[in-house]
Design a protein around this nucleic acid. Structure first.
Lengths: 195, 195
DNA sequence: TTATTGAGTATCGAGTCGATACTATTTGAT
DNA sequence: ATCAAATAGTATCGACTCGATACTCAATAA
């Protein structure tokens, strides 16, 4: 006797699909495409270990080829810079240009931000929690990396003596054996695993 | 002193963008594209007044040209049928074929349905409510029609004597002056306005 | 009867996206 | 030290999306 529940699931899927369509639609603003916005957003929030075509590919869940094209168009628009990685010459270090940083500030989805702020605080809270759970579950289901924040990682060592070697880099990543600035520790990392 | 709130909005936008991307990604299943799934989903749930290229265009928020192409590919795949409207020969009546109905049952987003069901009932409830509010607000902001359910419309007349003229069509739409079956009254309508 | 409006289609260009094939570099196993 | 994987990216193909513009008919209004 579950018809009402089933109908709720269908309703949820319908809502999710329509919301996604609207999000996608807004992504066609300011001369960029949704995938380009996603890339820009990632590059603005990812730490130095993750800002590579490969990192972006994993984040987007796309193929290398698609990501490569997206990056090419962002580079052509002068929003992204590519630099060779001196340690691994196969790899490319990505960086937003000043124009890229600026555009990332004026996110195409900011109208959703306003609507979110119009919700009551408890609604905001529970919506965020539920969306987080959904996202996590989906990523885990597909075997994708969570791309969480550096300082919530099990490899994060807060104020580690190893980090103090370089001034301004008080923390440390025990996986990559690299010192971390406070700034870095608030960013998205491809290697992040929940503590 | 609002930095924590601002960060929450950014976090919400990030969640929304990532979730949308995953939804979009799943839309590339079973040989269909996201826009084609959206169209299929709409045609499976829309009432007879709304199942036209124009109705679909308004629902998708796309341009007529894009919708036309999407419909052409669905027709080529044998999922949609086009029939001339005898009353208005400019117009086209859309109908899912048996194959289309069947495919619509196995929705590409059903994996999200399972994840939704894994949430606790209160979480499900509040998530659905919040998403509904967000969707409504966004559609209103853009001046889009809500595409709500027929029987929640201010033009819906339950068990109207006008409806009883035809057997099996007990209800009535006071806007279009048309009798409505119970089945119709549970479907999406392009003309729907909140009661 | 003739504008004008409306429903759809056709076509263009930039982009997406999965798939496949390719180059160059690094690494690992002898 | 060498040579076969494995890895990071790029190049290209085909089907599709999507906004924009131009177009064809049919319906309606003046």
């Amino acid at each position: 006797m579950t018809p009402p529940k089933t109908s709720s699931v269908e309703h949820f899927i319908s809502l999710l699909a329509r919301l996604s369509r609207l999000v996608n639609h807004d992504g066609h603003a300011s001369g960029l495409k949704p995938a380009q916005w996603d890339a820009l957003r990632f590059l603005a929030r990812a730490n130095r270990f993750s800002r590579t075509p490969g990192g972006l590919t994993a984040y987007l869940g796309a193929t290398k080829g698609t990501t490569s094209q997206t990056l090419m168009s962002l580079e052509k628009k002068g929003l992204v810079e590519k630099n060779p990685d001196p340690l691994d010459r196969r790899s490319v270090a990505l960086k937003l240009t000043a124009a890229g940083e600026e555009l990332a500030q004026s996110d195409a989805l900011s109208s959703f931000g306003s609507l979110f702020e119009a919700l009551s605080p408890p609604e905001r809270q529970s919506l965020e929690v539920a969306m987080e759970q959904l996202l996590r579950a989906k990523l885990q289901q597909q075997g994708n990396r969570p791309f969480g924040i550096c300082n919530s990682c099990r490899h994060f060592r807060k104020n580690s003596p190893d980090g103090k070697l370089s001034a301004g880099q008080p923390h440390f990543c025990s996986l990559l054996k690299e010192p971390l600035s406070d700034h870095d520790s608030h960013k998205i990392c491809i290697e992040q695993e929940a503590a």
